[in-house]
């Protein structure tokens, strides 16, 4: 089990949140809280960079859905970037590959 590190930075199009480590039951709440503190403006794009994500369970998916809801409430978009193969497979099984906009990496997002 790896600890979860969440770092944020602002770009011209909106905030980028980088998630490193395990997004599981023990740590998913941290991402939810971090994202809920973000102030998003209409038209902005929230990028959740998952390139260094090592594990994601249903709690992690819940946190991603909460982030999506937070963005939508502000009139902003949400993009998942650098989704690891395992997590992409899970997102596809549960149909969320069609709910989230998914980009290869944070730069193209």
């Amino acid at each position: 089990m790896s600890p979860l590190t969440i770092t944020g930075r602002d770009t011209t199009t909106g905030p980028v949140v980088e998630v490193v480590g395990d997004l599981d039951y023990a740590h998913a709440t941290a991402l939810r809280q971090q994202v809920e503190r973000l102030t998003l403006r209409p038209g902005q794009r929230l990028v959740v960079d998952l390139a260094s994500l090592e594990f994601c369970d249903s709690s992690g998916i819940t946190a991603l859905l909460a982030a999506r809801q937070h963005a939508q409430a502000a009139g902003a978009d949400i993009v998942l970037s650098g989704v690891p193969t395992n997590t992409l497979r899970v997102l596809t099984i549960v149909g969320l590959d069609r709910v989230f906009t998914i980009r290869p990496d944070a730069a193209t997002a």
């Binding site: 998916i61 149909g95 969320l96 069609r98």
Partner: peptide
């Protein structure tokens, strides 16, 4: 195919 997580979207296929 295409079955969505239940409860996430207002309408889901």
């Amino acid at each position: 195919p295409g079955g969505m997580l239940v409860g996430v979207l207002p309408t889901a296929p």
